[in-house]
């Protein structure tokens, strides 16, 4: 099957997931609510004002995290590089942890405190990586990856510190947030994150060709005409904006960012023109499915979605690795 066709099919599947999942829940809603967006009966209200924003937010968040993973894997030429492993997500988490324990109010231009704090943290993490690439222009991607991992640990220790010194209530709120979840997501959150993630996604898509070349190696990319340092800086910035937006809304959900690009490389190949949209669609649909499971398992209570993504994703990914379908993993 042609890769383009596979992308179209993936798109159709993702659309189906987004349409069907809001119907699924503790109470399965009838199809008829679809035709009644302004309805006032309980089913229509649950569907349009609670479940649809939540499903859309899960989709946008999952798409943002997956795109971030695809970009980082190309820039670092390493299958383990994701915003999560490189400390961007933990930077964002640190921002939120600090803001909640200090009771900061950082509402900027309609963005919530958590969003602003997550952004600041994500930018901080990306800033450190970026400074490293500038201080040592020839730095290997392995060294950068190690630096990112070290930073991840550093931020994690700061988060632990903040949590340890915080009041019991704040500490619980931080833990709860770190598990990731879409429970509190409403139209307002959705309206906050969507423009940010879309903006980052468009910026990243603009660099699809450059990403192909960067993935073949920085020297080749430079000799083919890519302004490597400038391109990397812009991609870092776009990714941190995107991941900051996603993490601010959904919490630091791991694994989507690593898994989605790998599976999509198997589906549509390594060209970022196809890989980027495929990763976004897959990551988005996957998070929607996980969130649906999270809503259902303990109904009427719900699980944090972060518990589900890796619980379902990791065994699936291991199975793919054993079946040798993930490109670039052959010994």
């Amino acid at each position: 099957m042609r890769p383009t066709l596979r992308l179209v099919l993936l798109g159709a599947l993702a659309l189906a997931v987004v349409v069907v999942m809001p119907l699924v829940g503790g109470h399965v809603l009838p199809w008829s609510v679809l035709a009644d967006p302004r309805g006032t009966d309980p089913a229509a209200v649950i569907f349009w004002q609670i479940r649809v924003p939540r499903v859309l937010a899960a989709f946008v968040g999952g798409a943002g995290l997956a795109l971030g993973g695809a970009v980082f894997q190309a820039i670092f030429r390493n299958p383990l590089a994701t915003p999560y492993t490189l400390g961007v997500a933990s930077g964002a988490s640190l921002g939120v942890a600090v803001a909640s324990s200090l009771g900061l109010s950082l509402v900027v231009g309609g963005l919530s405190t958590n969003s602003v704090a997550a952004f600041a943290g994500a930018l901080l993490a990306v800033g450190v990586i970026w400074v490293l690439t500038r201080l040592r222009p020839g730095i290997s991607s392995t060294a950068l990856l190690l630096a990112g991992v070290a930073m991840n640990f550093f931020f994690s220790s700061l988060i632990l510190f903040v949590q340890y010194t915080a009041s019991l209530g704040d500490s619980y709120r931080i833990i709860r947030w770190l598990m990731g979840g879409l429970g509190g997501v409403d139209l307002y959150t959705l309206a906050n994150m969507t423009p940010v993630v879309v903006l980052g996604a468009v910026a990243v898509a603009r660099y699809a060709r450059e990403l192909d070349l960067l993935a073949t190696g920085p020297e080749i990319a430079a000799s083919r005409g890519v302004a490597v340092a400038r391109t990397r800086t812009r991609l870092f910035l776009a990714t941190s904006v995107m991941v900051g937006g996603a993490v601010a809304a959904c919490g630091p959900i791991g694994f989507v960012g690593m898994m989605a690009p790998h599976i999509c490389r198997f589906l549509v190949g390594s060209h970022h023109r196809l890989l980027l949209p495929a990763s976004a669609l897959f990551g988005g649909a996957f998070l929607v499915l996980c969130d649906t499971v999270a809503r259902l398992v303990l109904f009427p209570a719900e699980l944090p979605v972060g518990v589900i993504t890796a619980f379902l994703g990791a065994p699936f990914f291991l199975w793919l690795l054993v079946r040798r379908v993930v490109p670039g993993t052959h010994g």
Partner: peptide, 21 residues
């Protein structure tokens, strides 16, 4: 950078990285 790439091209030593293009 792009202008130079239209004049000069470079074939580095073979890269061990896997290329699935």
């Amino acid at each position: 950078r792009r202008e130079l790439a239209r004049t000069v091209s470079y074939v580095p030593q073979p890269d061990s990285g896997s290329l699935d293009f």
